[in-house]
């Protein structure tokens, strides 16, 4: 059930930061509310003891999507519907658009925000693998300071991040990629719509004369939190693409996930399936030449 709470709707960042500074742990930021409200109803321990909810939706600058000199800057409170509609994102970072299109339903996408997706840091957060392969950097503000941190470092454990109680994530920065990246985002849910992901995989790959110049691989829902597979990427770099290599990478990914996750009730299903789908994905990228 929803506890008795005091609700604030600051209209600018300064006001927001003051509120956070004043209320610290007693306050929780609410953006789309698609995790918090459901969490209240479930009696989730993560949302116990909240006295104040501070709504980001009235702060325009947190909703903007803009070009910068070296990439794009996405306001943390941009909804997935806004991301989906945004031509800049669609053009430069199509895997993020695809990931956004697979979030919940139209109603959920209208409310849920990109910042909320990774601040909540559920293992199944749909946008995280896409953001990770784009090397997303996030900006965090408090009354005192602003800091920048890579998303990969920001995410600590399931439902835990580096974010302190006086801080807010203001921006997600995605640096432009050089040309010639191929890529794909894959999500498996139990249904085609309104589904929590069972497996997500994002892959970016740049080939130079059939050799892998760069490859970035990230997953969600099969690992405790969304994660990049750095050693697998290192193994692949410089190698000539071939069916044999793809098979090898898919085989190795299974081992990496098993190492990262350990055995779960779902492993018997997820491990062979993630291997199979990753292999499919690499083949698919290679065959269709999907740009980014």
């Amino acid at each position: 059930m929803i506890p008795k709470i005091e609700y604030f709707s600051p209209v600018n960042l300064t006001e927001l930061l003051k509120l956070l500074d004043r209320h610290q742990q007693a306050a929780k930021i609410i953006a789309g509310g698609t995790d918090i409200i459901a969490g209240f109803h479930q009696g989730s321990a993560r949302f116990k003891g909240i006295k104040y909810l501070i709504d980001l939706n009235w702060i325009d600058e947190l909703k903007k999507v803009e070009l910068s000199s070296d990439g794009i800057v996405i306001g943390s409170a941009a909804s997935f519907s806004e991301i989906l509609k945004n031509e800049l994102i669609n053009h430069h970072f199509p895997l993020l658009s695809t990931a956004a299109s697979r979030v919940g339903s139209v109603q959920i996408r209208n409310r849920a925000t990109i910042g909320g997706n990774f601040v909540n840091n559920a293992p199944c957060a749909d946008s995280v693998p896409a953001l990770l392969v784009y090397d997303a950097e996030i900006r965090i503000r408090s009354v005192e300071a602003e800091r920048a941190v890579s998303l990969a470092d920001f995410l600590l454990k399931p439902y835990q991040t580096q974010l302190r109680s006086d801080e807010v994530v203001t921006q997600i920065r995605l640096p432009f990629l050089s040309e010639n990246y191929l890529g794909d985002f894959y999500k498996l849910g139990r249904r085609r719509g309104v589904a929590i992901s069972r497996i997500t995989l994002a892959v970016l790959m740049k080939l130079v004369e059939s050799k892998i110049d760069d490859i970035r691989i990230a997953s969600g829902a099969v690992t405790p939190i969304g994660k990049r597979f750095v050693s697998l990427e290192q193994f692949a770099r410089g190698k000539t693409v071939s069916d044999h290599l793809y098979r090898e990478l898919a085989r190795m990914l299974g081992n990496e996930i098993l190492d990262a996750t350990g055995l779960r009730w779902s492993s018997a299903y997820k491990l062979p399936v993630v291997q199979q789908t990753f292999y499919q994905q690499l083949q698919h990228i290679y065959q269709t030449g999907n740009l980014r």
Partner: peptide, 23 residues
């Protein structure tokens, strides 16, 4: 996979991976 045992996980070998059009 159909023959795999309950409570045991199965990692596929590279020869188990199937070309997309066969799946």
């Amino acid at each position: 996979t159909h023959a795999s045992q309950a409570d045991k996980s199965l990692l596929l070998e590279s020869e188990d991976l199937v070309a997309p059009d066969l799946l």
